[in-house]
Each structure stands twice: as structure tokens, then as C-alpha cells.
């Protein structure tokens, strides 16, 4: 059992995208609980996240791990549908209007999904109004805004205005992330946190959910 458990974990950590589907199917055939498989896969992703944080893994490794995870979840999908999904919470995420960079956003999505969050990805170049509408529609507790360009940073405060307009600003936490962001910009933008590191962003989001 220990060896079997280590297989999926190792497959994620070793980025075995070509083998992951058959490994997952094999586990299912043996009658293993699909949610236990998801848990092991997530542990693998957490290990990848740690290696990324320690500069042992690179961006391309993280993307590959995300793709490997996606493939594993695809193989599990038919089984997962039968059970009620258990998520830690809902998060709306997108790259702000005027900015087209998706790699940072995709890293954060990979980390969030592997940490058990339900993520609504709005894509790139997202108008502020759309963030607000999606937060209302989904009831998400967190709105995460990606912005790489310093040019697009001021637009982040427009998301705050839009959330205010539809009366849900006090129901959501807003975090912005991107290379050009600094912690101290949060006050200026009227948001709850600003980070330039994906792992730090994940920690903050997790802390918001653990506080209920």
C-alpha cells in the first residue's frame, strides 16, 4: 500500500504526464476511493510547489505538474461526478483588463486547484465589471486579480468600485498578484492584499478561508 501511495505522488513530482492516466486508472481498478487518489495527487502538487519555492523546480516544471494533475483529474472525472465534490471554497481569478499575461495566473490556479479550491478562471484582459459579476454569480469569497504590467495596476482599483456598485465589496476579499506589485500597494488600491509571489498569495488566500 505504501508503495502504491507513493506511485501517484511520485508521478506528479516526477512530471510523468504520459503515465499518469494509466496509473490513476490502475488505482481505480483496485477499488481505491477516488477522493483518496485526489488527496495523494494534491500532496504531489504541494511537493512540487515546495520545490518551486526552493528554486529546485522552474516555471516549466510547475506548468508540467499542473498539466499532469489536469490529466489525472480527467481520468478521475467519471468517478468524481458520482460523489459530491468537496471544495475548500470558491475563488474568481483573472488577468486585469489591458494585461494579457496568463502564466502567473495559471501558476496560481494550479496551486489553488491542487490545494482544494474551486476556481473560476475568467482568462486574460478581463474588464473590472466582469470580476464583480462573476463573484456575485458564483458567490466566491475571494477575487484574485493578476497584473504583470505596471501600466495595468491602477485598473485593479476599478474592480473594487465595481464590487461596491453591486453591493458585495464587504462579502469578498480581493488579492492582486504580479511581478510589479508590492505589498504596500494594497492600501493604495483599496484591496486586501497585494503580492508578487505565487506561494505567498496562496498562503494569504488559505489564511482567509481558515479564518472562516
Amino acid at each position: 500500500m505504501v508503495i502504491e501511495m507513493a506511485n501517484l505522488f511520485q508521478a506528479i513530482v516526477n512530471l510523468q504526464i504520459n503515465e499518469i492516466s494509466s496509473l490513476v486508472e490502475e488505482e481505480l481498478r483496485r477499488g481505491r476511493d477516488p477522493y483518496d487518489i485526489v488527496r495523494e495527487l494534491r500532496e504531489g502538487m504541494e511537493e512540487v510547489g515546495k520545490k518551486f519555492e526552493n528554486s529546485e523546480y522552474f516555471l516549466a516544471d510547475l506548468i508540467m505538474a499542473g498539466e499532469t494533475m489536469k490529466k489525472a483529474l480527467d481520468a478521475l472525472k467519471p468517478m468524481l461526478k458520482e460523489c459530491k465534490a468537496e471544495y475548500k471554497g470558491k475563488i474568481v481569478i483573472g488577468t486585469i483588463w489591458g494585461d494579457l499575461h496568463d502564466i502567473g495566473k495559471d501558476i496560481v490556479i494550479t496551486l489553488l486547484v491542487s490545494s482544494g479550491f474551486e476556481v473560476y478562471d475568467l482568462g486574460i484582459d478581463v474588464p473590472p465589471r466582469v470580476f464583480a459579476e462573476e463573484a456575485k454569480r458564483t458567490g466566491a469569497k475571494v477575487v484574485a486579480i493578476s497584473a504583470l504590467l505596471s501600466t495595468s495596476i491602477p485598473t485593479i482599483s476599478k474592480v473594487v468600485e465595481e464590487l461596491r456598485k453591486i453591493g458585495i465589496r464587504d462579502k469578498v476579499k480581493i488579492i492582486a498578484g504580479g511581478a510589479a506589485l508590492r505589498r504596500e500597494y494594497a492600501n493604495w488600491l483599496g484591496i486586501d492584499a497585494a503580492v508578487n509571489d505565487a506561494m505567498e498569495g496562496l498562503k494569504i488566500i488559505k489564511s482567509w478561508f481558515s479564518k472562516g
Binding site: W97, G98, D99, L100, I124, D125, L149, T151, S152, T155
Partner: peptide
């Protein structure tokens, strides 16, 4: 082009 057209994707 994105936003006001200054960048593109």
C-alpha cells in the same frame, strides 16, 4: 489587441 490596444495577446 487588449485593453486600449497598447498591448496584444
Amino acid at each position: 489587441p487588449t485593453g486600449e490596444g497598447e498591448y496584444w495577446v
